[in-house]
Design a protein around this nucleic acid. Structure first.
Length: 211
DNA sequence: CACCAGGCAAGTA
DNA sequence: TACTTGCATGGT
């Protein structure tokens, strides 16, 4: 059934080509900045940050917090996100010397535990980093995923993050490219047809699914 | 004007 | 444990 949903979405939408970002480290930063925030605003923030300092873990951490906050201001919650970014950078630099390839070599379960231990990184941000920055076969769940599934009565609305994730990871092959495209397509269908205000259910490519 | 966007943590009872 | 609230910009 999850395979059928993917087939419908893939037939309807063009490839999403997630995650936007020139480097894995940039994807990590974007994952934190995009929390409850429109991606367009994240792009502004990243652009401003790039024009402020060299886009490396050490350089960004060396930036005075007030300047970091000013740079990422367009992404919203800039004081909160400044702290969260610095928490992550502390972890990334202290444990991996800011080296993506070194981090990538660790086991998935260990990395997920480490990331969840950083204050400001919850399950979605952790999994986004694992999948989109480190190429780990982890399925990313977000509010659109939950909403699309529950609107089609595939899961109860109150299903937890980990349970939704298990539904996907227990029935699909653990393929990075597939998980990448699938999550992005769920966001696409959620945005386009499954909005709270002004839903467009009649034209949704998932119309009628209720296995 | 209201509402939303690729969440998370802290506070309250 | 189970809710609720704060965080904040920019687009529609």
């Amino acid at each position: 059934m999850l395979h059928d949903i993917f087939t419908r979405l893939f037939a309807h939408f063009a490839p999403q080509r997630w995650w936007p970002g020139e480097t894995p480290f940039e994807v990590m930063v974007g994952a934190i900045l995009t929390q409850n925030t429109n991606w367009q605003n994240v792009e502004r923030a990243i652009a401003q940050l790039k024009s402020t300092v060299a886009f490396t873990p050490h350089a960004i951490f060396a930036l005075p917090p007030a300047m970091l906050a000013a740079a990422i201001r367009p992404a919203g919650y800039f004081n909160i996100k400044t702290g969260r970014l610095r928490n992550f950078l502390t972890y990334f630099v202290e444990r991996y010397n800011g080296n993506v390839e070194t981090m990538r070599q660790q086991p998935i379960a260990q990395l997920r535990t480490e990331l969840l231990g950083v204050r400001g990184i919850g399950p979605e941000t952790a999994d986004s980093i694992l999948l989109y920055a480190l190429d780990k076969p982890v399925f990313v769940v977000d509010t659109y995923t939950q909403r699309v599934l529950s609107r089609h009565y595939l899961v109860p609305e109150e299903t937890t993050y980990d349970d939704v994730q298990s539904i996907f990871m227990d029935s699909l092959a653990h393929d990075v490219r597939h998980f990448n495209e699938y999550h992005a397509l769920l966001v696409a269908v959620g945005k386009t047809f499954c909005r709270r205000t002004n839903p467009q259910c009649e034209q949704c490519p998932l119309k009628g699914v209720n296995w």
